[in-house]
Design a protein around this nucleic acid. Structure first.
Length: 838
RNA sequence: GCGGGCGUGGCGGAAUGGCAGACGCGCUGGAUUUAGGAUCCUGUGUCGAAAGGCGUAAGAGUUCGAGUCUCUUCGUCCGCACCA
């Protein structure tokens, strides 16, 4: 038995990381003639806390894909970068009196070291950093293009204002009425804001989804977010005026059932018709109350409707000339449709609730056998029109079509498509972001900076604390704010808002193609070759915002001819979060929350009322955070990577188990010790032929299909078989190492070198399997009688249905049938035999 | 309320409509060991002494055959939430 050194991951992992780095082993080449493959992970925000065990899960997954693709001969782009602008860094900097740029660089350094410790095959020569002026020059450039194309504009509007961050938030950043980041109350505030007209791309963003390979739940949530709905806009005359009140409805078929109108408290007609309104004070009181409410309160009370009738102003239903009252209620939103609705209480739940509360009439127009005075009937599938003049007797679908034709002909409405998607609030009143390259000139108005003057650098100053007024901290830096107008040369002031963090991450995948280019965001050749991203993996939490924003930017850049393809990502997958078992906690000597230990020093699990362990998100305050540094220290980076992939299905959220992770270390040691039983043959032995080829096939397919856990299980099965057999040939070991390398690259390289298998694995081709080598001579099939397993027999492999007829005489089959009459004889080749008897 | 997902051993989880529980953790018993949180071997869904039953949240259905497909119910997680 050969004597081999002890497995020492600390030593060999450092060693191979250096070899890869020194040789630039994973650098993408600019040889545009080779087939390419672009793998992308969401670049991290380099927080002060460093990596936690959640980060490496998607990183390892795409590292496996990248390593395999390289071995298959692809020119692989597998880049990494830093999404480094953002509030936590700025807040940390303010608190500790250091410059955010300094904090950022320190955090990046820490992140980079941790990633390198895990042996990821990133191309570190292509790192991007969103806070690098050479990078944000192009973020600003893209903004200018949008400005020139009318997609960036300034508008005064109610914004979400975080009272603690002192900053405007996008709708998407307000969760349950509080700031997504800090949890403080969010109020509405009127402010002039930079906006991006993403709504102009609503339909393109929707259509594009049909052309890409995203997992379904990602597509679904994008579709829901865009929220397309088809209907009609209808004009209701205002009594005693020449004016019309325009509404949007998806149910024009119910027009005869309209018994009142509702407008949002912010509707401009309130001001416009102040003179004829007789209960103005009451209305204003209601509006003020509605505006004081946060979004959260508005939704909290959504069961109990409130409202005030506008006295002195009535509307006329254009289809029957009936005069109906107009109400104001905050269940109608100014930000969707026209800010006004026609209310059909018989067939809309919300209208029904409102009508019941204020005792408004309810008219049935879709017959459904229900008494609409007692219960709302919103069903569109089964009803037939009633009380609706020319539509009577039609189905809802027929009536919709007929009524739209009718109103278009009469000129009081037309078909209309609405989207829930709103324009994107694209400004933050904070320091640590990209300056917006616009100058405000008293003569010329808003003037964009000349492109040759980019990047517009963030001023390097000591004070960047948020102001109480809600102005950006940049507003106080007069040296920087005061400038000359690029157009007329007169005195002007710079825009002092900065861009939101989403900006830099909306195009970083383009920069990776050509990260050092100073003439363009990337060269057309590089973009043509590398785009689009073949496989993008990221968290479910980014499926609405980041994914939508970055698709929008790419679509826009495509439209202006900068990037070659409309959709940036060919395939998008999502990983499950790494969770934690909940532990009983206490404060340790340092006052930190730490798990309480039992007498054996093991943490005590927290159980629910059924005695099941509680699983929760990892967080510092719960004392359940697992630090990758500690895990790597104990079991090594290879075992760590392997456990990240083996712990469960990749898309599913899984709690981290320390003992489970140790199992992967055990497996790697088993592989290591195979060297002790290595025999000199270069071939794969006959008795392992089927298993080895089956494993190559299974592992290859499973890596491609994101089924990393079963790929690893298959390799474990093979190793178990080899250990049982007691020997392994060089050929078998080579194959195993090649398959295992993407998951556990350090140990595979080390064994490969120790056994003199040749140049490093990262230069080796991916193993191929031979279907013919996977065929057994004889196989076992099951015998079922009426679907119940009765026994098993060995039959020659490849037996056809005709040949199987002979099995009727087989001893085991006769015994299983037991003299009963055979009704049906079903032979499934390679699987089983099912006999139906009576 | 709407949309999406998921319910399989003590645990994480495997199973193109075809032998449920692969693989791992944990636990059993044993071997080796001064020792073990090392290594190796054994066993490990459940009832049963065995033969043999029964088992994939519950119920129905389709099928020669259902964890897998259809319907109903329950539970659970996630997203959206007055979007007209």
């Amino acid at each position: 038995m050969a004597s081999i050194p002890l497995y020492d991951p600390k030593h060999i992992e450092k060693k191979w990381q250096k070899v890869w780095m020194d040789n630039k082993a994973f650098a993408a080449t600019n040889d545009y003639t080779r087939p390419k493959y672009y793998t992308l992970i969401e670049f991290p925000y380099p927080s002060g806390a460093g990596l936690h065990v959640g980060h490496p899960r998607p990183y390892t997954a795409l590292d496996i894909v990248a390593r395999k693709k390289r071995m298959e001969g692809y020119n692989v782009l597998h880049p990494i970068g830093w999404d480094a602008f953002g509030l936590p860094t700025e807040n940390f900097a303010i608190k500790n009196h250091v410059h955010p740029a300094e904090v950022t660089q320190k955090n990046i350094q820490h992140f980079r070291e941790q990633l390198q410790m895990l042996g990821f095959s990133f191309d570190y020569d292509r790192e991007v950093d969103t806070t690098d002026p050479a990078y944000y020059k192009w973020t600003q450039w893209i903004f200018l293009q949008m400005y020139k194309h009318g997609l960036a504009y300034k508008s005064s509007m109610p914004v979400n204002w975080c009272t603690s961050c002192k900053c405007v938030l996008a709708n998407e950043e307000v969760v349950d009425g509080v700031c997504e980041r800090c949890g403080s109350a969010v109020i509405h505030k009127q402010q002039s804001q930079w906006m991006l007209r993403i709504t102009a791309y609503a339909q393109k963003l929707l259509d594009g989804l049909d052309t890409v390979d995203f997992i379904d739940r990602v597509k679904t949530s994008q579709r829901n977010w865009i929220g397309r709905s088809e209907g009609a806009e209808l004009d209701f005359a205002l009594e005693n005026t020449d004016d019309k009140l325009r509404v949007f409805t998806t149910r024009p078929d119910t027009l005869f059932g309209v018994t009142y109108m509702v407008v949002s408290p912010e509707h401009p007609y309130l001001e416009k018709y102040k003179s004829v309104i007789t209960n103005w004070d009451e209305l204003m009181e209601y509006r003020a109350a509605a505006q004081r409410k946060s979004d959260f309160e508005r939704t909290e009370i959504n069961k109990d409707k409130t409202g005030v009738e506008i006295k002195g102003l009535r509307a006329v239903n254009p289809i029957n000339g009936k005069t109906i009252p107009i109400w104001v209620s905050d269940y109608v939103l100014m930000t969707y449709g026209t800010g006004a609705i026609m209310a059909v209480p018989a067939h809309d739940e919300r209208d029904w609730d409102f009508a019941k509360k204020f005792d408004l009439p309810i008219i049935e127009v879709v017959g459904g056998g229900k008494n609409v005075q007692e219960e709302c009937f919103p069903d569109v599938a089964t009803g037939v029109m009633v009380n609706s003049g020319f539509m009577d007797g039609m189905t809802v679908a027929e009536a919709k079509k007929a009524v739209i034709d009718y109103v278009q002909e009469k000129g009081f409405g037309q078909r209309k498509i609405n989207y829930k998607l709103r324009d994107w609030v694209f400004a933050r009143q904070r320091y640590w972001g990209e300056p917006i390259p616009i100058v405000h000139c008293p003569c010329c108005g808003m003037v964009p900076l000349d492109e040759k003057d980019l990047p517009l650098l963030l001023p390097n100053v000591k004070n960047y604390e948020p102001t109480e007024t809600g102005e950006s901290p940049l507003a106080k830096i007069t040296d920087w704010v005061n400038c000359k107008c690029p157009k007329c040369g007169g005195d002007a002031k710079r825009e002092t808002d900065t861009m939101p963090q989403w900006a830099g991450s909306s195009w970083y995948f383009l920069r990776y193609c050509d990260p050092h280019n100073n003439e363009a965001l990337a060269s057309p050749e590089a973009l043509k070759y590398w785009m689009n991203v073949d496989w993008y993996n990221g968290g479910m939490e980014h499926t609405t915002l980041h994914l939508l924003y970055s698709r929008f930017w790419n679509l826009f850049l495509h439209d202006i001819g900068v990037v070659p393809l409309a959709e940036p990502y060919k395939k998008r997958t999502s990983h499950g979060m790494v969770l934690a078992y909940a532990y009983e906690t206490e404060r340790d000597a340092n006052g930190q929350v730490a798990p309480k230990l039992d007498e054996n020093g093991n943490p005590i699990l927290k159980l629910d009322s059924n005695g099941k362990p509680i699983i929760e998100k990892m967080s510092k305050s719960k004392g359940n955070v697992v630090n990758p540094d500690d895990v790597v220290d104990e079991i090594g980076a290879d075992a760590f990577r392997m456990y990240e992939m083996f712990m469960g299905a990749f898309e599913q959220a899984i709690p981290w188990s320390t003992t489970g992770a140790r199992g992967c270390r055990k497996f790697i040691e088993r592989v290591w010790r195979l060297q002790e039983v290595l025999t000199p043959e270069e071939e794969i032995s006959k008795d392992l032929m089927v298993s080895v080829h089956t494993t190559i096939k299974k592992v290859s397919e499973d890596y491609d299909g994101m089924k990393f856990n079963t790929a690893i299980a298959q390799m474990m099965t093979l190793v178990n078989e080899i250990v049982k057999k007691g020997s392994i040939t060089r050929g078998e070991l080579k194959t195993l190492l090649l398959l295992l390398d993407p998951v556990a690259p350090h140990v595979c390289e080390e064994i490969w070198e120790l056994q003199g298998f040749g140049t490093p694995i990262y230069t080796q081709p991916w193993p191929k399997y031979d279907e013919k080598a996977m065929v057994l001579d004889e196989i076992e099939i099951a015998i079922q009688v009426n679907g119940k397993i009765k026994g098993r027999i060995m039959i020659p492999n490849g037996m056809t249905r005709e040949e199987a007829e002979a099995l009727r005489e087989h001893e085991a089959v006769v015994a299983a049938v037991g003299g009963k009459t055979i009704v049906k004889f079903i032979f499934v080749p390679g699987r089983l035999l099912n006999i139906v008897v009576k």
